[in-house]
């Protein structure tokens, strides 16, 4: 999946807005990007549009069905939850939390994983041996077990949740990065650089990193969805984002006891979650095709 960027780049630059054209060329990518932009906008400016304070409770109005009647007590387009909070406002605020979790986990996990993977692949020897044993140990560890213990020790909070997810997610990046580096380090230009006496740091930054980035970016984009879903699963076990933070996974988990009596509690945050995961997956798919010159047009249907 390596990238021979030069040629493809030259080809693309002949027309204006090449990236935009590439996106618009593929209908799934268009949908994915539009959704993702919508979510980012929602996180950025949505809170000023939310009709209610997402944590404000009105016990007398709990479990009200969706209503569009105007007036502060009535306008709940997605209904109210078990504490009488406005679900619409919570869904809007929740986009911040979900995007925050998704991106921070993927970025921090990616940085750690790439660091370990590149070091293992480049230096080989004992560095690689130790790194790969650590990776093995992680892979042999049921995720739930690790998450439960870490939360039990550190306590439940948004930061700790991100920590747990990043802590378990880095392994994938490490394996992929190592694999890529192993195949790259014997390439002529890398070997040449080494022969010419370039320092390891320089080789890593100048030659290896740019070449494995596309693969890592694709992997990361595809993992964002999984991370958001995983955070929701932890909420099911009572380990997710603590109350009263409006987090989709938590809202979904709290709403599960009301699915038969007040369907709107779990449905709207669930829908938001599905759409977000959908959009990052579509964007990830497109990125993979776009960054891989051999596959131009392959996934464009």
């Amino acid at each position: 999946m390596g990238l021979a960027g030069a040629e493809a780049g030259v080809l693309r630059r002949r027309r204006r807005f090449p990236v935009l054209r590439a996106i618009l060329h593929s209908r799934p990518a268009t949908v994915g990007w539009l959704l993702l932009i919508a979510f980012v906008l929602m996180a950025a400016i949505g809170p000023s549009l939310a009709p209610h304070d997402p944590t404000q409770q009105q016990l007398l109005l709990r479990l009200r069905a969706p209503s569009f009647r105007l007036g502060a007590d009535h306008f709940h387009p997605m209904g109210t939850d078990q504490l009488g909070r406005d679900i619409f406002s919570r869904v809007i605020y929740g986009s911040r939390i979900s995007l925050l979790i998704g991106f921070t986990v993927v970025i921090s996990g990616g940085v750690i994983g790439c660091g370990v993977g590149i070091a293992a692949g480049y230096f080989r020897g004992w560095v690689e041996r130790i790194a790969m044993r650590v990776v093995d140990i992680y892979l042999a560890f049921p995720f739930i077990l690790l998450a439960l213990i870490v939360i039990a020790v550190l306590g439940a909070s948004l930061t700790n949740l991100i920590l747990v997810l990043a802590f378990t997610g880095w392994v994938n990046y490490a394996r992929v990065a190592r694999g890529e580096v192993l195949s790259l380090r014997e390439r002529e230009y890398v070997v040449a650089a080494r022969v010419m006496g370039a320092r390891s740091g320089r080789i890593l930054v100048r030659h290896l990193l740019p070449n494995i980035m596309p693969t890592i970016i694709v992997l990361a984009s595809l993992q964002i969805g999984g991370v958001v879903i995983q955070a929701g699963a932890l909420s099911f076990l009572g380990l997710g984002v603590p109350p009263p933070t409006p987090d989709w996974g938590r809202m979904l988990a709290e709403g599960r006891d009301y699915m038969a009596t007040a369907w709107w509690l779990a449905t709207f945050p669930g829908l938001a979650l599905v759409l977000l995961v959908l959009s990052v997956n579509l964007v990830g798919d497109w990125l993979r095709d776009y960054l891989d010159p051999q596959r131009q047009g392959g996934g464009g249907s």
Binding site: G225, L252, M259, L273, L278, N281, L282
Partner: peptide
């Protein structure tokens, strides 16, 4: 292809516990 891929995307995006409780209900 369209059906398979849309189905797959939704399958990947649906939280397990929502699906499970729905099926039971």
């Amino acid at each position: 292809e369209l059906i398979a891929m849309v189905g797959a995307l939704i399958g990947q995006a649906t939280p397990v516990f929502w699906l499970g409780i729905m099926l039971v209900l």
